[in-house]
Amino acid sequence: MSVPARVPPCLASLPFRGSRAVSEGLLTWTMLRGPTWVRLLPDVYVHRHGYRVDDHRMWCEAVALRLPPGAVLAGRSAAWLFGAEVLSRDAPVTVLLPTAVRLRPHPRLTVVRSPLPDEDRTRFAGLPVTTALRTAFDLGRLGPRAEALVAVDALLRRRVVKLSALRDYAEARSGWPGAPLLREVLTLAEPLSESPMETRLRLLLLDAGIGPLTAQHEIRAAGRFVARVDLACPVLRLAIEYDGDHHRERAHFRRDVARLNALRAAGWVVLRFTADDVLRRPDATVALVRQALAERRAPTPPHGHP
């Protein structure tokens, strides 16, 4: 009967440098080559029970152990650590390297080279990262345009960056690559946007000439709160909402029905869209909103007439 491998408590969950564990007598190289440990990067390992192939935090921890002096986690990885929803499940870790610093390439890494003054570095969640302000500045300059806006909105929503501060920061660096895109993004940014798909829906409508739209508009009737809607044209009492997967849950569905009935009683029309509507049927989505706006603008016929 085989004896289970000894697992030092300090190595039970987080990535670690293999050479350090060996030098401290915690493990041997033979043990590290066994099935108990997973090699993430050169000289970086994690216990097999702590390994999740799509765990971005685990990969950030692993990459941080290999960062040369002056390098930090940046871009979408830094934004994700700040709480912004900007990553796909299999996204590589973004690292920002000062111009003269070198780092061995790896499939789990995206390397960006850029000047990095000390004031643009910080530590967050125990890891070296670009500041939230520098992170928003970098992502707002990085196309495609919709992705840049989604990233900036997400960081503004987390309240780790203020729009006024980001505008001032960008203005002081107007000659940097991607600055024209960032200027456009800052004219579209909405700190009240509550999800990436809500940002995409708003941008789709703005690009179609539909607007201005009020984000997170609070609706009241007879002085009482009725609902808060994602996007609104208050003058015409038209609400436009993005419905994520959570709306399909039974309890949420029941609340939605009661909410929609209350909005209708208050004289509002509500259009609801899904990710498929925004991403795969954008023309049809725009057409529906335009039709609703036209109907709301049309004069109401006198009572008793068609």
Rank of each mutant, 00 (worst) to 15 (best):
G126W: 15
H49R: 07
R57E: 15
A64I: 06
A132S: 06
G70C: 09
P105Y: 03
A146K: 08
F124K: 04
P144S: 10
E85V: 06
R113I: 06
M31C: 11
L133Y: 03
G50A: 13
T135E: 05
D90W: 12
V63D: 04
T130R: 04
R52Q: 11
L116W: 03
P69A: 12
S88Q: 13
Y51A: 09
A74R: 02
V86H: 00
D153P: 00
V72A: 10
L96F: 09
L65T: 12
E85I: 05
A71N: 12
A125M: 12
P105A: 08
F137L: 04
L32K: 03
P35K: 11
V111G: 07
L116N: 04
W37F: 07
R121D: 14
P105D: 10
V44R: 03
V44W: 01
A151W: 03
T99G: 10
H106M: 09
L41R: 09
E147Q: 15
M58H: 05
R108W: 14
F137A: 01
L73M: 12
T36D: 14
G83L: 05
V95A: 05
V86P: 00
A136W: 02
L116F: 10
A62I: 05
V72I: 10
A146R: 13
A62D: 08
G70I: 05
A100Y: 15
W59C: 05
F137I: 00
R89N: 08
E85D: 15
G34H: 12
D153H: 03
R108N: 10
E85H: 10
L133F: 04
L127Y: 14
S77F: 08
D153S: 02
L116S: 02
T99R: 13
P144A: 14
V150T: 08
F124R: 07
T94Q: 13
D54R: 07
D90K: 06
R134M: 05
A132T: 01
Y45I: 04
D153M: 01
V86F: 01
L81W: 09
L81D: 09
V152S: 00
V101I: 12
S77L: 06
H49S: 11
L73Q: 10
M31P: 06
F124G: 08
L32W: 04
L149R: 00
L96P: 01
P98L: 06
G83V: 09
P117V: 02
P42N: 11
L97K: 02
R89H: 12
V129C: 12
A64T: 12
L133W: 03
R76V: 11
T36F: 13
T122S: 10
R113F: 10
P117G: 07
Y45F: 15
P117M: 06
G34K: 08
R57I: 04
V101E: 14
G143C: 11
A84E: 05
V150N: 03
T36V: 10
F82T: 00
A146C: 09
H106A: 07
L133K: 02
T131W: 10
V152N: 00
P107V: 08
P42R: 13
L40V: 03
V93Q: 02
